[in-house]
């Protein structure tokens, strides 16, 4: 029974992922050194099943190019010349914590907040913008690009970290990430259980 459910789930995910794949511009080239072992028969469908969350502005606004955060569903550059800073926590008198609390504030347009509100550090900026799904998947798993996390730690980060979890509860006036949190967590764990396979391209 369990196996059947799992199989159906994978099938549905594959279809969804296919649709997503078609809707996205075709990647320029296959990334080099894609480990075959980690590529599943559905070509990364287990990963692409939860990728819409990662691609959502709530996540991408801090995982985008440049040394600054972005804002809004249009991902415009953060106003007030806010920068990543030496550790990802902003600069001098304009640190993230200058305006952001460890929780959201009650009204629209007030600064959103979560514990340790920050961007990735400049030494490991985790820029996802412009990556193909395959590249994104690889970079997520690469300890040299993910703050030294092994797969278990990565999954824990994706499913339990409070700043990541903010994406589901971004406060009034902001669109949350698209997949419900428990569903997202389940998908990440399914992906983990399957050996965290990445799309081949």
């Amino acid at each position: 029974m369990k196996r059947v459910e799992f199989f159906v789930a994978v099938l549905i995910l594959a279809v969804c992922a296919g649709a997503l794949w078609l809707s996205r511009p075709v990647a320029a080239a296959e990334p080099p050194n894609t480990p075959r072992a980690a590529s599943d028969s559905n070509d990364g469908a287990l990963f692409t099943a939860f990728v819409p969350v990662l691609r959502h502005p709530r996540c991408m606004n801090c995982h985008s190019k440049g040394d600054y955060p972005r804002q809004g569903d249009d991902s415009h550059r953060h106003t007030m010349d806010i920068r990543r800073g030496p550790a990802g926590f902003g600069v001098t008198a304009a640190k993230c914590s200058t305006c952001h609390q460890d929780h959201n504030l009650g009204n629209v347009h007030l600064p959103p907040g979560a514990p340790a509100w920050h961007l990735p550090s400049p030494s490991m900026p985790m820029i996802w913008e412009g990556l193909t799904d395959a590249q994104l998947c690889q970079s997520l798993k690469d300890p040299k690009q993910n703050q030294g996390r092994n797969l278990d730690q990565l999954v824990e980060h994706l499913t339990e970290d409070k700043l990541v979890a903010w994406g589901w509860n971004p406060g009034p006036g902001r669109t949350p990430v698209p997949i419900p949190h428990d569903e997202f967590s389940a998908k990440v764990k399914v992906w983990q259980a399957a050996g965290a396979p990445c799309p081949s391209r």
């Binding site: 920068r83 008198a93 200058t98």
Partner: peptide, 25 residues
Amino acid sequence: LMSAAVLLREKPAPTDEDIDEAMTG
């Protein structure tokens, strides 16, 4: 002044760019 005080403590010789980044808020 309170913003500039943090800037000056962390960057004792701030550039114009440092000033922009610290003071634009």
